[in-house]
Design a protein around this nucleic acid. Structure first.
Lengths: 219, 219
DNA sequence: TATTTTATGTTATAGAATTAACAAGGAGGT
DNA sequence: ACCTCCTTGTTAATTCTATAACATAAAATA
């Protein structure tokens, strides 16, 4: 039970973990896991059970003392918190390899997303169809966003075009931008921007590799 | 305990940010930015200058009081810390859309990576060439890893094949695994694993959208 | 040349997150 | 029915992180 007017600050790491929990739960066979304990879930992700319980506690908890968590109940609750219960229309701008990979991403439906548009500036790409969605010119973006009530724009353009694409999307009226280009893009207040940098993950892996496998036997 | 080397515990968030700094620095035009201040860099990423200085301080700092940071010097230092100065051979397992997107990723060279192998189980993919690299069957992985001294294996297989691929890679002798499949994979001690979940970024964006744009007058 | 400005390195404090410890409640066996 | 074992919700303590404040040092300016 949360008081309606009160907005407790949820740690950002908690949100990230909630997403991991949901991802993990949605992938396990339904028949074998009607229920799951914080201990079991923690083991699957590599965390301690207290982390999970503390995360859930921010939202009043999802179970009852003594019981284990009901998996469907847990999934529903997490989806509701993360806003995945509401279906959203999305478009992808930039139909290069990464754009095409995302367009073919099967888990989009699980995330409550419906791909309603693909856009590029390359005339050789305009007109082709991917998963029943035709590639159109980017100047059609404003119309599509308004007509189809597009909530999220995905940027998979080269770095040079990323910021202008973000501006175009924001001006067209999207509420969120998921940016896969190498550069950080900025937007007007009110537009949520998620910058996704693949290289960051690679660099952290590289760092950890260096830590565990030092290049030279150094004492 | 205290060893002569600088093996203090570096916060994980610091490493993530170092990667962002390097990514940002490497993308700005060299002629305009021979030097940069913590204030300027912070503004570009959306942080406070103190965060950057504190991060650098873990490694003794990269400048001198009064001077601004020399960009090339900064880049070199960050690359050295992150282990990007040492060139590493990598292979990609799973030549679906995402695998092909990564194989065409131009920034691989910047990360010190050299793609030396592509692998799949699909006979229709085996034999094709992407960026001068031929797709081979996965049973050739052990030989290639040993012969070409492959340090990192990238998993872009479906969820079902992810863990077995990780096992195969670990047994073949890779030191690190970069996993893009939806499931977390585990590995033996000594093998560093970086699980990259695209859905997590999407879910956090969805959450933030819900916070700023409440669905309807509900509750 | 003296002074102001700006910059980083360093240290100390406030704040946040993780971890541990405890309380409450149900299931299962004897 | 009683006892023991588990499990979650909650609170407290510890650890870690981010922020602010300060010291140091060079460049720009008058």
């Amino acid at each position: 039970m949360e008081t309606s007017s009160e907005k407790k600050k949820i740690p950002h790491m908690t949100i990230t973990r909630l997403a991991q929990y949901l991802n993990c739960l949605s992938l396990l066979p339904r028949e074998h896991y009607k229920e799951i304990s914080s201990k079991e879930l923690a083991a699957k992700i590599g965390l301690k059970p207290t982390v999970i319980r503390q995360d859930f506690h921010h939202f009043g908890g999802f179970g009852q003392a003594g019981y284990r968590y009901k998996v469907p109940n847990l999934i529903d609750g997490l989806e509701r918190i993360l806003g995945l219960d509401q279906k959203q229309n999305v478009i992808i701008v930039g139909v290069g390899h990464l754009g095409q990979a995302l367009a073919n991403y099967r888990n989009f439906e699980k995330l409550g997303l419906r791909l309603v548009g693909l856009f590029d500036i390359n005339p050789r790409l305009i007109g082709i169809t991917i998963r029943d969605v035709r590639v159109r010119d980017i100047d059609e973006i404003p119309g599509v966003v308004e007509r189809d009530n597009v909530a999220i724009g995905i940027i998979t353009t080269p770095a040079e075009a990323a910021q202008s694409t973000a501006n175009l999307l924001a001006h067209a009226g999207v509420k969120g931008i998921w940016n896969f280009s190498p550069v950080n893009v900025a937007g007007p207040a009110g537009v949520i921007i998620q910058n996704e940098h693949l290289s960051v993950g690679m660099m952290t892996l590289s760092y950890m590799l260096k830590q565990s496998h030092p290049p030279e036997a150094q004492g």
